[in-house]
């Protein structure tokens, strides 16, 4: 089988499941379609020979973040909290805004021919863990450390928000 056929199949699947995220009526179904979309994107990483990104994408997005999403949505009483359907004016405004955004994006892509990496001299092993790690810890050391500081700050913030204050009811 041609590898490009796999790419077309995977891209079609990605777009379809991403569409279903928006179109599904039940929020739980939306979340599950989103998980499936992440799997398809991981498949794209495998085609790009970036196994590490594939695994990390599954662990972080599908394994942790989406579980928390599902967790929160399951706490809702879905039958009571159905969002009432929007009026026709809102729908019209929404489609006009989204349509013009689409036009702008397409115009942008057509104007600038995005630089594609040169095929000759391209190392197909760039995505392997060893090479990725070396690049991260040498060329991009400062951004990497800044990102870790950002994560640390976010973590401290989450702990502070979750902390029970003095005198608060203890369930």
């Amino acid at each position: 089988m041609e590898i490009s056929n796999i790419w077309y199949f995977l891209s079609g699947l990605t777009l379809l499941s991403a569409l279903m995220v928006v179109l599904a009526k039940n929020p739980i179904h939306s979340v599950l379609y989103l998980v499936f979309t992440f799997f398809c994107i991981s498949g794209h990483y495998v085609l790009l020979n970036a196994q590490f990104l594939m695994a990390v994408n599954i662990i972080v997005y599908a394994g942790a973040i989406m579980v928390l999403f599902l967790f929160v949505i399951m706490m809702f009483d879905l039958r009571k909290n159905q969002p009432e359907s929007k009026s026709n004016l809102t729908k019209l405004a929404g489609s006009v805004v989204a349509g013009s955004l689409l036009v702008v994006l397409i115009a942008l892509v057509r104007q600038n021919n995005f630089m594609s990496p040169k095929i000759e001299g391209f190392n197909s092993q760039t995505g392997m863990v060893e090479n990725l790690g070396k690049v991260l810890y040498s060329e991009y050391l400062l951004p990497f450390e800044l990102v870790s500081i950002l994560f640390f700050v976010a973590m401290v913030g989450a702990v502070l928000l979750g902390k029970r204050e003095a005198g608060e009811r203890n369930f």
């Binding site: 590490f52 695994a55 599954i58 394994g63 579980v67």
Partner: peptide, 21 residues
């Protein structure tokens, strides 16, 4: 694969979906 242990880790983190759903 050269990410073997991450594979284990990823699948373990997916294991909760069956129970949750």
């Amino acid at each position: 694969v050269n990410i073997g242990i991450l594979w284990v880790f990823g699948i373990v983190s997916l294991g909760v979906y069956g129970i949750l759903i």
